[in-house]
Every structure is written in structure tokens, then in C-alpha cells.
Design a protein around this nucleic acid. Structure first.
Length: 119
RNA sequence: ACAGUUUGUCAGGUGAUCGCUUAUGUUUACAUAAGAGGAAAGUCCGGGCAGUGUAGGGCAAUGACAGUCGCUAACGGCGACCGGGGGCGACCCUAGGGAAAGUGCCACAGAAACGAAACUACCUUGAAAAAGGCAAAGAUGAAACGAGUGAGGUAAGAGCUCACAGCAUUCCACGGUGACGUGGCGUGAAGGUAAACCCUGUCAGCUGCAAGGAGAUUUGCAUUAAGGGCGGCCCGUCCGCAGAUCGAUACCCGCUUGAUCAAGUAGGCAACUACUUGACUAGAUAGAUGAUCACCCACGACAGAACCCGGCUUACCGAUGAACUGUCACU
RNA sequence: GCGCGAGUGGCGGAAUGGUAGACGCGCUAGCUUCAGGUGCUAGUGUCCUUCGGGACGUGGAAGUUCGAGUCUUCUCUCGCGUA
């Protein structure tokens, strides 16, 4: 799980990202991101709908796998931005970790989430 | 040995590295401790707690429940027993009050579907048509007038009469707290359906932690009796009413010590209760238990707390303990 | 989290406990037309069949009843309201 300071707080701020964020899609998930100049630290949320998979245990597991990858990449990411990762496929639960990390990496580059020096 | 019945417990473990939440201590980043379930689930019942009007009395309506005796904070739950059904048996299942309070329904078929009547038949009268008697036999149907067999009886028949058997039941005796059981003298003939309406008895005010903890200022209307309130009416009780603006909004509190858990003793067939000692055992708030690697084995099922408890129901890879039953073989 | 509702042919949607599928849309075949559309008529759940018929069918599993789409219980799926 990600640290408290990197989480979203309250529904409204997340809804702002949903509405105005730049979307990048793949078969498995959608990433919406937007710069937030009011903040100094990036905020990240992983969303798994009940329609993707019904079991609460499985949904928690998907979130934890993605949060784990994000946690490791966190120092490389730009600050002052809000990111929402919306999972749209139940394959994320069963696919191997290497495949998942590769998929996420591609999406992160597409969405320009990394620091400019790094990209 | 094989087949089976009931029931209890567990729900991968250990180590390393990097992380998350809470608490405490130093201090601004570390250290220590703790960190999902038997069903956390379904939300099907019952409570606590909070608000609503001190929720208090009566009536009506609505809903739920239904053998007896107990247990419980309470229950539609649990235990023991009674009646009924199933199984060779261990044991299992059982919405199990009332159909002589009333109403409704019983399709099709059938002469007739609950009122008793009479299509074929049988008997008597009659030339016949028909009239009268009778309800044993017949086909239909889930169910046929609701007491079977034999004898008597008769024009033909019929509980019409008798004997035996069955069912129900007033009363009496005995046993049991009781449901009820056993026996005896009598009496009787009631179709089914109440998970149809209903009757009888018992219980329930309503809303739910998104409850609630907070309201203040001002404008308009009303001026002590009209009106109003978290379902209806009456009593009782309480209160001025409506709009606008501001305040708060990851707030914080409620939020986890509780009908709590563990062990022992005593009572009880049991559910459970009493006492003593010990323990503190998640509290997040877009929501905390994860990732990677190594080893072991039985190769890991169903599944994630969201105010908290007691049940019920449903899901579940397996591992293992206990008690008991039947059949076969041997001693 | 809390509180509610629904499930019937391919689709929408009827059916008082008594032959399941009224009615509309769609689909198929025929007629009409030079052709298409329109219009009219007939048919249209699944399986088995000795072609007479039989069995299974209202999300699923039990129960009550002579008989359940309907009544009762459990369960699955879908949807709605509530900040």
C-alpha cells in the first residue's frame, strides 16, 4: 500500500482528475493524469470497479499489485501531479508480475509521468 | 475389514530485504508493540446505542410467530421432551393452534365436488310410457358422501340390527411440571384446503452511525388559540411557523473494555448460569496485512472488518481427533 | 454501509392456484408486384419419436397443494434510491 501523503483525500479531488485529466488507454487499464500546481507531492489512486471482478479479495489484490509497482517507481515520477489508474480487465489479477510491470512502464511513458531528465 | 451416522479442532509455516495503518517513546526520522474471518459474506431475524415528544395509556390498521417445558438482554434462535414421518440400525426430518365461529375455492372428467341428490343398475306397480322405493355395485377423478369384514334382515337394499376389528372423543383412574401416554365405562360419524380469507393467543411506535454530537444572525407571517410534530385516531404531553445568509466539510468526536475472551470450580440431562483468577486482542476513512526470494510439507479452499454484539442461512481444498451403528471374519 | 425493487419466447410485455406464452415488434414461408416496399394469410421454445404422441421448459433448489409462472423458505443475477 502507498503512503498516506500520496493518497487522494475526499471524492471531489478525484472527480476533478476524472473530468479533466489526460487519458492514456491500454487493453488492461486507463491512466488519467493532470498537473496540480497547488501540491508538492504526487497523488496516486488505483480504482477497480465491482464490474471488473466481484470478489473483494481479488479487487484488493489487483490494487496491491499495482500500488507495489507504483511505490518502487515513485522517486522517478514528477511531483505536483494527480494520477488515477482505472483497471478495466480481470487479467491483471492472474498475469505474471514481469508482464504487468512492463505494461505499466509503457503507459507511464506515454502519459509523461516521469521526470523530464529521465525521459 | 468394509459400509455408514453424529460431532469437535485447524485453515500453511519459518527466515531475509523493501513497504502500509495504529499506539507508545525519543525526536522529525528511527525504535518497540499490535494488526481481518469461521463464515468478516447474504442482510434473513433479534438486541444494544442514537435521534424522534417523558415513546406513556387505549383503539384501529399492518406485519411476524404458533406442540410442551426450559435457556436467553432478546429472538422467528438454542436445548430437552411429546406427537407425526423415514431408516435393519447409529440417527435424521418435521411452518406441529383452530376446518362442529363464519366465508371462499375444489379446473378437466364425471350422474353428482359438499347442499345432498340419483345417470346406469337393482326392486315393486304397469301392456308400455312412466311412477314409487333403494343407495350395496359401476365408469370418472387428486378426492365420491366417508366405519371395514362377516352374519342377520328385506320386494330390493342400507349401521337398519348384531358380533369382531379400526378411528375420534366426553368423563373417570394412574403416571408426568406439561405437551401427552396407558387403562376403563360410555358416546359418536366429522371430505380436503388456513404457505385461501379468517378466528384464537403472543410480540412489535418509527427511523437508522450517511443515526447523532451545532447552531448563529436576519426577514416575513401569527399574537394566545389556531396550527404543528418521524405512519392513523383518541387521551395525555411538548412546541410559535416559514424563508434567506453565514458557519463546518481528508475535520474531530461517536470508534471500540465488551450480554468480551481464556482457564478453573460449582449447579443443570442439556441449552446455559454463578463465582474466582488472568488477558486487552484491528479501528482504517477512496479505506491499512502486501511484493520479491529461499527452504519444508499435507502443495494452500471459500473468502477481506467499516458502529457493536447474539443467532440463522449460504460458500469451502483438505488435514485430523472423538463417540456410535450395521454386516462379515477370527478369538 | 443502509434501505428497496425486478427476473416469463429472439426483444418488449400479459396471464384469478387449473391446457404457459395474450398482445405488439422481429424472423420464416406463401400470395399480391416487372422488382422492392406496403398489404393479406399461415407458421415460429428445446429434445426424443414407431409421426399417434411423449418428456422438459417462467433465473436456480426445496416445500405447501390433487395441481405452482402465481403461495412459503433459501439462493443466484441484475437494477434503483440514499452523501
Amino acid at each position: 500500500m502507498i503512503s498516506f501523503v500520496h493518497r487522494f483525500h475526499g471524492h471531489s479531488s478525484l472527480r476533478y482528475v476524472y473530468k479533466n485529466g489526460q487519458a492514456v488507454r491500454s487493453r488492461l487499464m486507463t491512466i488519467k493524469a493532470i498537473d496540480n500546481p497547488h501540491r508538492k507531492i504526487a497523488r496516486i489512486a488505483v480504482v477497480v470497479s465491482k464490474k471488473v471482478i466481484k470478489s473483494a479479495v481479488s479487487r484488493n489484490r489487483i490494487r496491491r499489485r499495482i500500488y507495489e509497482y507504483v511505490r518502487l517507481q515513485l522517486p522517478e515520477l514528477r511531483e505536483a501531479q494527480d494520477i488515477a489508474i482505472i483497471v478495466s480487465s480481470s487479467e491483471v489479477l492472474t498475469m505474471p508480475y514481469d508482464e504487468l510491470s512492463e505494461c505499466l512502464k509503457q503507459l507511464f511513458i506515454q502519459a509523461k509521468l516521469y521526470k523530464s531528465s529521465h525521459s
